[in-house]
Design a protein around this nucleic acid. Structure first.
Length: 824
RNA sequence: GCCCGGGUGGCGAAAUGGCAGACGCAGGGGACUUAAAAUCCCCAGGGGGCGACCCCGUGCGGGUUCGAGUCCCGCCCCGGGCACCA
């Protein structure tokens, strides 16, 4: 733990000599042992009457061990689970490890140790750390995605999707690093160069890949978001990612009778479409290219094909493109417009072809200017007309109306699109369509550390799924698992492994040697948890019906698109196959905030990663848990500074002292009615705040209560409820307090205290008296004082008289039990 | 550029349109102690006044309202997501 030498953290700097003092180093291991012995954290999966599946995002067990961000995430979710249990639910809180994937593999390569050896060590360490922070995890149902008993069923899910036609094989472009000799994810390409080789340009390669056709689910995935009980931010990110846009497909015909279909969201501007642009890969390009233009077109297509996928999409650079030599007829104007190809048009969106309207689209304007193509105004703002010159593209003209568009002039542009599309549809040259930005999910990885895709290629029978009874296809041990230049997985080196007889005809065949994406492993792990001990099926139907959909899922927004989208898709697909009885996997999702350090996200490269171990050693898990939760609103995160952690420890010490004193008390005193009211109010606040994940204010409420108890004297009956309120936050500490106060059994088996709503409000209220909106006095009155009484008392107040000068106010605003405002 | 969040003391923050700054950290003063730590008590947004009190104050500029940190309009800044998506 780094801290200032000159001024060491002084709190508890010396070993505390007082044997009665709170010592987390003895309290915490003791209760962790008892929980284990008594099975306190176990859920009765079959017998539970009020099942509550409390899910948190399982970690990737990195070599560095757990970091503060993980602890923040897990503790927040654990508090929720513990609260639900105390509130009467049967909570199932499982954990596991997501240990396949390129990160593990790259790390293994770096340190020269096989992942099969590395991962179990990391998991061991993680599990130890997770137990230390006192999670209510039921470790009997731990899952590890790298275990053949798990990925057997990952492969099984692939087969279900394959049978349903949702897994398809097709050729697609991937990023290829010639130095790493492997395929890279888009995230690993930095400005056109390899993340790990900053001077090596990434290339584009065409490979056969397996895809899940998630794009067919775009509309459903979007629609369900509207009513989902999810964090607003997460819903917005997903909706943007799906990227629905309504528009039209319009047809431009060539003299040779070819029909070029373009997608546009601005059919209203079709009269201004002065040229067409196709993506360089568009299948019609070869046929459209004239002899004179062939050399140029081919050179351009080669150049684009060599580019990496990331810099291809960077919009800043100047536009390039080539004329094909052909023309097509604008369906609205009838004019012949030239057909170009340019890399600013992407094959994977829309139809891979656009009508260019330089007058009202910035990219088209830029391209037209560079190539000397004509530009026409078809929308005019009030005060402009058809001949007002265009100095730049005007994509969004407020109150704009169509011009230069015979038959539609004068129509507002926002309405004209529909009319024009309808008219073109009648001539077979257009129709309204909806497009989505969401692409199909490529699950092929030309890598080693993942579940082999369970497919066999037979020369006679073609693509044959591995029979379910032959699962798992075990990932074979491979000493040298480094990727190579071949463009296929290292598994392709193991002929003895991939050479298998065809399951259908028995002839020579070979296994698929690619492995599947790690995101597939994590797209269904929540289904596995309740059935983690079963080897005969992926998930038991009865348990699934009982425990799923997940009641609460808490995790980071860094997984808002990939993981959460894929999990939803897999669930929806399994539902359509009749394998699960629900379409959405998570009833409720809450995104927690990010813990940053010195204003930046924690990362190894920045060197600002904080290891929780040292804090737990020094302060104990409970203090550390509460400190993280007190940092700021849970759903916003905060900056990690260790200044302030002793505030939490002071709070726990105060509670400890109160408990000792109460236990030592011989004479039983009646609790003061005022303190009883404070207690009810505290229960109310902690209940509401814990429920809404406002952990920081729940802790503040408990602190206020403790301050009041110290002033007023506290007996056991005022402290026992506090022990329960504290249990989600500081579970070991709460157990110890509960035990010392004479409670029986685990504090986790108690009922959450209830409050009396009439006692939870103060008897005496302070009423604010304002004159013209400014506070001039305060009145102490009993709750429920009538307007008459308040106004009379307020007007008689000398501090008020000074400002009203005794005259009757023009207006009186009265808010019961809060304020009265005189307007004079 | 588009779409979400957010901007409040020295710091982390709190506040159904109704007392801005709860709770905590750091700080100052005092008690205890030979001394320190720990602990306990008090102070603590800025300015003015001996004082009771008064004025100013929630990124900036307007507006609605008896009353705005909170609602509306227009900006600035920070964080996140998307980005030649037609």
């Amino acid at each position: 733990m780094a801290r200032d030498r000159r001024k060491p953290l002084s709190y508890n700097a010396m070993p505390n000599s007082d044997p009665a003092a709170y010592d987390p180093q003895s309290v915490e291991p003791k209760w962790q042992r008892r929980w284990e012995e008594r099975g306190t954290n176990h859920a009765d999966l079959f017998g539970a009457s009020r099942p509550y599946f409390n899910l948190m995002m399982f970690p990737y067990p990195s070599a560095e061990g757990l970091h503060v961000g993980n602890v923040f995430a897990f503790v927040g979710a654990d508090i929720h689970g513990r609260y639900q249990r105390l509130a009467g639910s049967d909570v199932f809180e499982p954990l596991g490890f997501d240990a396949f994937g390129i990160h593990s593999e790259n790390f293994a390569l770096k340190v020269g140790t096989h992942p099969a050896e590395l991962i179990p060590r990391n998991i061991e360490r993680f599990r130890g750390q997770l137990k230390r922070i006192g999670l209510m995890a039921d470790w009997r149902y731990e899952v590890q995605t790298t275990d053949p008993r798990y990925y057997r069923w990952t492969q099984w899910i692939f087969l279900q999707l394959f049978r349903a036609g949702l897994a398809v094989r097709r050729r697609a472009a991937v990023n290829w690093c010639p130095a790493c000799k492997t395929v890279l994810a888009n995230e690993q390409v930095i400005g056109g160069y390899c993340e790990r080789h900053p001077d090596v340009r990434v290339e584009q390669r065409m490979l056969d890949q397996w895809f899940f056709t998630i794009s067919g689910y775009a509309q459903r995935l979007l629609e369900h978001l509207e009513t989902a009980d999810w964090s607003h931010s997460t819903r917005t990110i997903q909706a943007n990612w799906i990227g629905r846009s309504e528009g039209a497909e319009l047809v431009f015909e060539t003299p040779g009778g070819r029909r070029i279909t373009v997608f546009t969201t601005r059919a209203d501007t079709v009269f201004g479409a002065t040229y067409l642009v196709l993506a360089p890969e568009h299948p019609m390009v070869a046929d459209l290219t004239t002899a004179e233009q062939r050399a140029d077109v081919q050179a351009y297509r080669r150049k684009v094909a060599a580019m990496d996928l990331v810099s291809r999409k960077v919009g800043e650079k100047t536009k390039t493109g080539v004329f094909t030599g052909s023309y097509a007829r604008n369906p609205a104007t009838g004019a012949a417009v030239p057909i170009w190809i340019a890399d600013y048009v992407l094959m994977e969106y829309g139809t891979g072809a656009i009508m260019a309207v330089p007058g009202h689209d910035e990219r088209d304007f830029e391209f037209a200017a560079a190539m000397g193509l004509p530009c026409v105004r078809v929308v005019a703002a009030p005060g402009q007309d058809a001949s007002t010159p265009l100095a730049a593209a005007e994509p969004d003209v407020p109150d704009g109306r169509l011009v230069n568009s015979p038959g539609y002039d004068g129509l507002p542009w926002s309405e004209a699109g529909r009319a024009i599309t309808q008219a073109l549809e009648a001539r077979g040259l257009g129709k309204a369509v909806v497009n989505y930005r969401l692409h199909d999910w490529c699950i092929s990885r030309q890598r080693y550390w993942g579940p082999p895709i369970p497919i066999i290629y037979c020369d006679r029978c073609g693509t044959v799924p591995v029979p379910e009874e032959d699962l798992p296809v075990v990932l074979p041990a491979l000493e040298d698992f480094r990727p190579d230049d071949s463009g296929v997985s290292p598994l392709a080196r193991l002929e003895a492994w991939y050479r298998v007889p065809c399951p259908k005809c028995g002839g020579t065949a070979r296994r698929e040697t690619d492995v599947s994406d790690t995101f597939l492993d994590s797209a269904w792990y929540f289904l596995r948890y309740p059935s983690a001990d079963r080897d005969d099926l992926a998930f038991d139907a009865g348990l699934t019906r009982k425990w799923l959909p997940v009641a609460s899922y808490i995790g980071g927004n860094e997984h808002a698109v990939l993981h959460l989208m894929y999990a939803r898709f897999i669930t929806m697909a399994l539902h359509d196959l009749g394998l699960v009885p629900f379409e959405e996997p998570f009833r409720r999702f809450r995104a927690h905030g990010t813990i940053i350090k010195d204003g930046a996200k924690m990362s190894k490269s920045r060197g600002n990663v904080v290891n929780p171990d040292a804090y737990i050693d020094r302060w104990g898990a409970d203090t550390f848990r509460m400190y993280l939760m007190f940092l700021g609103p849970y759903q916003e995160g905060g900056d990690f500074r260790d200044a302030g952690i002793n505030g939490i420890r002071r709070f726990l010490d105060k509670v400890w002292t109160l408990v000792q004193d109460a236990v030592a008390q011989t004479a039983r005193e009646e609790a003061s009615p005022d303190l009883v009211r404070v207690m009810h109010r505290t229960i109310l606040r902690v209940t509401e705040d814990t429920e809404s994940l406002s952990y920081n204010t729940a802790i503040a409420a408990m602190m206020e209560y403790v301050n009041a108890l110290r002033d007023g004297g506290a007996g056991k009956e005022l402290l026992a409820p506090l022990a329960i309120l504290l249990a989600p936050y500081a579970p070991h500490f709460a157990e110890e307090c509960w035990d010392r106060l004479g409670g029986s059994g685990s504090v986790m088996d108690q009922s959450w205290p209830s409050f009396d709503a009439t006692l939870a409000v103060a008897e005496q209220v302070e009423l604010v008296v304002q004159v013209n909106g400014r506070v001039r006095s305060r009145l102490q009155l009993s709750r429920g004082a009538s307007e008459d009484l308040v106004v009379k008392a307020a007007l008689a107040d000398p501090a008020v008289l000074k400002f009203t000068s005794g005259t009757a106010p023009r207006k009186v605003v009265f808010v019961p039990d809060r304020l009265v405002n005189f307007v004079v």
